[in-house]
Write a protein that binds this DNA or RNA. Structure first.
Length: 737
DNA sequence: GGTTGGAAACTTTTT
DNA sequence: GTTTCCAACC
């Protein structure tokens, strides 16, 4: 029996079709990665050199998994197969050839933060009122333009006499000029510049066409126009292009993903073979039926219907809770009882939600219950202030033209160099046509700097020293030396707060990652590390072997599977989101939300539980949302619905916050009978001045003062580690010790 | 030049 | 409700 006998007929057909264009429409859980891996193995068996095979994914995690599985299946030679993400592929190409486009090979990669910094400066230079055009808006327009390969000039032409559009085009042009000056690329540029390179230098394109004779693209439904251009260029010579995707799982349209790449693939490649994979190996029939029923409500999709030989399974659970607190409590309680009964481990559970902001309540309940969990998303590790500071130092050492990095750390830790000084340096740099950092080197020559001029010297000396030691020291040693000389760690230690301690831990973690990079990389370089760091996503940190409950957004969950899946916040205005319902074209946006729902449902292997809350705090406001339309789209036969009885819940069961909300509501309803205070006073506070109390986040402390406000008590507490805080009693959830 | 307090924005999703 | 940003003060 060969390794290929485990594939079903369609999968095998896809595996065997190695020459010419191929579109695999792979439903959720239909084993598409299996097909790709076996396809690679098959090609190698047919004598194709692994060196000529390329597989492109979107996340490092997906790339890593594929690499692993290819290694396991074929062993010998598998290392030569190119498995990488779009972005890292482009970076590798650009590091070699970007000189042809007038950039230096030590270019920096700018993340969203850096982009915003640049854009702020652009707006200042062009006198753009950021009240009218927000930086975020300008950046999103620019990003969309890059996705569609529209240059600043083209945008300007298209603007005609529209003043507003012209302004945006100007901002775009200036933004690009700034990036160029900083020798930096943003994420979109990585792809755009690679396409540009190929278009300008046919001989370079040709060398890569020869190298990558067999191309495979995973999650094809999420590609945008430039990415498609990149793939078409690479596959242009041999046309051995295999794309795998599912139009029903296209959830990144908002970010420029072009769904027509998949819908029109057969028009672009008329000789393309199309294979549908509709047998699902992941979920129960009930889960699949539910997914099918929901996605059926979308128009303009490629018709397919998932089926499975798996058992029917349990019905989908739906619980309507009183509020978000109860929702979190219910879900966490459910998980812990299942684990207690020994039916499953923590790692078998995922809680999915629409927005990152919803994660907090789950975190709190999990902490209280003492359940290990992993939060995906939110603030990226590499986006944290202290990490960005250290990286900015490293970037400055690596790429002196990166002004954003230099400016970030020139006064961190405080060196007494302020805005006025920086402006003078900037003017000087502009007048002499040199980079910002080079101007700093000549600080003594700059007029009007006064005393501040002398403060610059120690900084540049430090950077120059580090640069000269780059060859003698390992990167880890260098970074440690840097932290020592700048006193960065010492400053944090002196702060002594929990927050500062956390920052030090994060920096230690960064040092660990640096050391790990130096051990594993073939040729560790500072540029190499910075690039690896720039391209990681939070999802990459998810390890299957660790036993924890996973919390993440529905978007992050794409491509993953869990035996037990909870989808929380199934309410109109939350999911589908308020933005999609009130956007420019609600129909289309609603379809994307529905696809997102489909993605969520199909993550579940054994059981799927949906929850909603009658009332919920959103941005400090209590919202009363109707149950999501997606719930109504599920036929009742698949659903096991449990709604909490109407009417006030028993006070014992209601958390303090809820009690407060309720009292606030009744206060609003009957303004003349001020009931709210009686509710509060009746329950009172279990602690008084001088008592020892515990707070979830701040730990133990002593109550210094209690003031009675209009609606709530304000408590002043001196925490042992977190210092003095003023808290509202109903929110602080202080416990007497 | 640095600190602090209050206003304003933020919450859709990310390589 | 939380975080970020900016202006007014030190």
């Amino acid at each position: 029996m060969s390794i290929y006998d485990t594939l079903n007929p369609e999968q095998k057909e896809a595996m065997l079709h190695t020459e010419g264009p191929l579109l695999i429409l792979a439903g959720a859980g239909s084993g598409k990665t299996r097909v790709l891996i076996h396809r690679i193995a098959w090609m190698m068996e047919q004598g194709v050199s692994p060196w000529n095979i390329m597989a492109i994914t979107f996340t490092n995690k997906a790339a890593g998994e594929m690499r692993q599985r290819v290694n396991n299946l074929v062993g010998q030679g598998a290392d030569s197969v190119w498995v990488a993400t779009f972005h890292s592929t482009c970076v590798r190409i650009l590091r070699r050839y970007i000189g042809h486009l007038g950039f230096d090979t030590a270019f920096s990669i700018y993340d969203a933060d850096d982009q915003k910094t640049v854009m702020k400066d652009v707006c200042k230079r062009l006198n753009i009122d950021t009240k009218i055009f927000k930086e975020r808006y300008l950046l999103s327009v620019i990003s969309r333009a890059k996705d569609e390969m529209i240059s600043p000039l083209e945008m300007e032409m298209a603007a005609q006499n529209d003043f507003q559009k012209k302004r945006v085009a100007e901002a775009y042009r200036e933004y690009q000029a700034q990036l160029r000056r900083n020798n930096a690329l943003d994420f979109d540029d990585l792809i755009v510049k690679t396409v540009e390179l190929f278009q300008n230098c046919p001989e370079i394109l040709n060398s890569y066409q020869e190298r990558f004779r067999y191309l495979m693209v995973d999650e094809y439904q999420d590609t945008n126009t430039v990415q498609f251009k990149l793939i078409s260029l690479l596959a242009g010579k041999y046309r051995n292009l295999c794309v795998v995707g599912d139009d029903d799982q296209s959830i990144y349209r908002f970010r420029g993903a072009n769904i027509y790449n998949i819908l029109n693939f057969e028009q672009v490649f008329p000789d393309a073979k199309v294979i549908k994979l509709e047998q699902n190996y992941r979920s129960t029939q009930n889960i699949l039926n539910t997914a099918n029923e929901v996605i059926r409500n979308n128009y303009g999709r490629k018709e397919k219907r998932l089926w499975t030989e798996n058992e029917e399974g349990r019905p989908i659970g739906f619980h309507l809770l009183l509020n978000a607190f109860e929702e979190a409590e219910h879900i966490i309680g459910d998980i812990s009882s299942r684990v207690r009964k020994g039916e499953a481990d923590y790692q078998d559970h995922a809680v999915l939600y629409r927005t990152n902001a919803q994660s907090r309540l789950f975190e709190e309940k999990l902490i209280i219950a003492g359940i290990p969990y992993k939060l995906i998303g939110g603030v990226n590790f590499y986006a944290r202030k202290e990490i960005k500071d250290v990286l900015a130092y490293l970037k400055t050492i690596d790429n002196g033209k990166d002004e954003v990095a230099v400016r970030r750390i020139i006064n961190v830790p405080k060196r007494g160099i302020g805005a006025a000084t920086l402006n003078r340096v900037q003017d000087y740099a502009g007048a002499y046509g040199i980079s910002f950092y080079d101007a700093l080197l000549r600080a003594e020559e700059i007029p009007n700097l006064g005393r501040s001029g002398g403060k610059i010297k120690p900084f540049t000396t430090l950077i120059q020293n580090m640069r000269s030691q780059l060859k003698e020291m390992s990167l880890t040693e260098l970074t440690k030396a840097l932290l020592g000389e700048t006193g960065y760690i010492k400053d944090l230690e002196n702060e002594g707060t929990d927050e500062a301690k956390g920052r030090i831990e994060n920096i230690d973690e960064l040092l660990n990652k640096l050391a790990a990079y130096e051990e594993t990389a073939d040729e560790p370089t500072l540029s190499g590390f910075l690039e690896e760091v720039a391209l990681v996503a939070d999802i990459d940190s998810l390890e299957e072997s660790s036993n924890y409950v996973v919390l993440m957004t529905l978007h992050s969950a794409k491509g993953l599977e869990f035996p037990y899946v909870y989808m929380a916040g199934m309410e109109e205005g939350i999911f589908p989101s308020y933005m999609s319902l009130n956007g420019d074209n609600p129909e289309e946006e609603l379809e994307e939300e529905r696809r997102l729902c489909y993605v969520g449902i199909t993550r579940a292997k054994r059981e799927l539980m949906l929850t909603a809350a009658r009332q919920r705090m959103v941005r400090g406001e209590t919202m009363f949302n109707a149950v999501s339309r997606f719930i109504r789209e599920i036929p009742e036969e698949y659903l096991e619905s449990k709604k909490k009885k109407e009417g006030p819940a028993k006070p014992v069961n209601v958390p303090k916050q809820a009690a407060w909300i309720q009292s606030k509501e009744s206060f609003r309803a009957k303004p003349y009978e001020s009931q709210s205070l009686t509710v509060k006073k009746a329950s009172g506070l279990e602690y008084g001045v001088g008592d020892r109390v515990r707070h979830i986040k701040f730990g133990e402390g002593t109550v210094l003062e209690i003031t009675e406000g209009k609606k709530d008590y304000e408590v002043k507490v001196e925490f042992d580690t977190a210092g003095i805080k003023r808290l509202f009693a109903s929110f602080a959830k202080l416990r007497k010790l």
